[in-house]
Every structure is written in structure tokens, then in C-alpha cells.
Amino acid sequence: MIVDYLATILGTVYKVPGVIESTMSFQDLEIDSLSLAELGAQLEDDLGVTVEEEDLAPTTTVAELAELLEAQGAVVPA
């Protein structure tokens, strides 16, 4: 599931501490704009989708990003 994939990436690569809830925004998770840009590039590489800068606003939630990725046909790598 893409939400779980995103939580794993945020916790391991971006070192977000604690539990990552799907309702949390990137602002809640204290992810800065540079990290959001890097996340977008990583998602494009890993999932083969296009992630626009406005899709990764500080107020975007993990669930909203997951829905966007699913709508584009993203498949979590095995």
C-alpha cells in the first residue's frame, strides 16, 4: 500500500521520528522544502510517476499524496 511505503520512506530516509499517521501533513512531520523536493524526485524514480512541486506543499497530508500517486497508477516497488 502506498501510504505504508510513504511512511517507511519518511521514517528511514528522511528520519521522521515517531509514528507517521496518514492524516499528518508534511508540516506536521517537520519536513522542509528541500526534503520535499528530494522526496518528489525519489518518488518519480521509484514509482515512475510525475510529482509536481505543488503536490508536495507543506499542508499536503501523507494520505493526499498517496491518493495522488495511486491516481497516476503508481505501484510500490517490490
Score class of each variant (00 low, 15 high):
Pro17Gly: 06
Leu68Asn: 07
Glu67Gln: 11
Val49Pro: 08
Ala78Tyr: 00
Thr23Glu: 13
Leu68Cys: 05
Ala7Ile: 03
Leu43Glu: 05
Glu54Thr: 13
Ala78Arg: 02
Ile20Gln: 06
Asp4Asn: 11
Val13Trp: 05
Tyr14Asp: 08
Glu64Pro: 03
Ser22His: 04
Asp28Lys: 11
Pro58Cys: 06
Gly18Asp: 09
Ser35Val: 02
Ala37Phe: 10
Val62Gly: 08
Glu21Met: 08
Gln27Ala: 13
Asp46Ser: 06
Ser25Arg: 05
Ile31Met: 15
Tyr5Gln: 05
Ala37Asn: 05
Val13Pro: 00
Glu64Arg: 09
Thr8Arg: 15
Glu67Cys: 01
Ala63Asp: 14
Ile31Trp: 06
Ala71Gly: 02
Phe26Tyr: 12
Leu56Asp: 08
Thr60Trp: 03
Tyr14Met: 06
Glu70Arg: 00
Leu6Met: 12
Gly40Ser: 08
Ser33Tyr: 02
Glu64Asp: 14
Ile2Lys: 04
Gln27Ser: 13
Gly73Met: 01
Gly73Trp: 00
Val51Ala: 11
Gly11Lys: 07
Leu34Ser: 05
Asp55Trp: 10
Ser22Met: 07
Gln72Ala: 14
Val62Trp: 06
Leu65Met: 10
Leu6His: 12
Ala57Asp: 12
Glu38Arg: 05
Glu21Phe: 06
Glu53His: 10
Ser33Gly: 02
Thr61Glu: 04
Ile20Asn: 08
Asp32Gln: 09
Gly11Gln: 06
Gly40Lys: 11
Val19Glu: 14
Tyr14Ile: 09
Lys15Gln: 14
Ser33Ala: 12
Glu52Met: 11
Val76Cys: 01
Gly11Asn: 07
Tyr14Lys: 08
Met24Pro: 00
Glu70Lys: 02
Ala37Tyr: 03
Thr12Arg: 15
Pro17Cys: 05
Glu67Gly: 01
Thr50Leu: 11
Ile9Ser: 01
Asp46Gln: 04
Leu29Gln: 09
Val75Lys: 07
Ala66Asp: 10
Glu52His: 10
Val13Gly: 01
Val62Ile: 15
Val3Arg: 12
Tyr5Cys: 02
Pro17Arg: 14
Leu6Trp: 11
Leu36Met: 13
Asp4Ile: 04
Thr12Ser: 15
Gln42Pro: 02
Glu30Pro: 02
Val62Leu: 14
Leu47Gly: 08
Leu10Pro: 02
Glu70Val: 03
Leu10Asn: 04
Ala37Trp: 03
Thr23Ser: 14
Met24Arg: 13
Ala63Pro: 01
Ala37Cys: 03
Ser35Asn: 12
Val13Gln: 13
Glu52Asp: 13
Glu53Ile: 15
Leu43Met: 12
Gly40Trp: 12
Val16Pro: 08
Ile20His: 04
Val19Asp: 12
Thr50Asp: 15
Ala63Arg: 12
Glu54Asn: 09
Gly73Ile: 01
Ala57Glu: 10
Val19Asn: 08
Lys15Ala: 13
Glu38Lys: 04
Leu29Ser: 05
Ser22Tyr: 03
Thr50Gln: 12
Gly73Pro: 01
Leu36Arg: 15
Val19Leu: 05
Glu38Trp: 00
Leu43Asp: 06
Gly40Tyr: 07
Val49Asp: 06
Glu21Val: 04
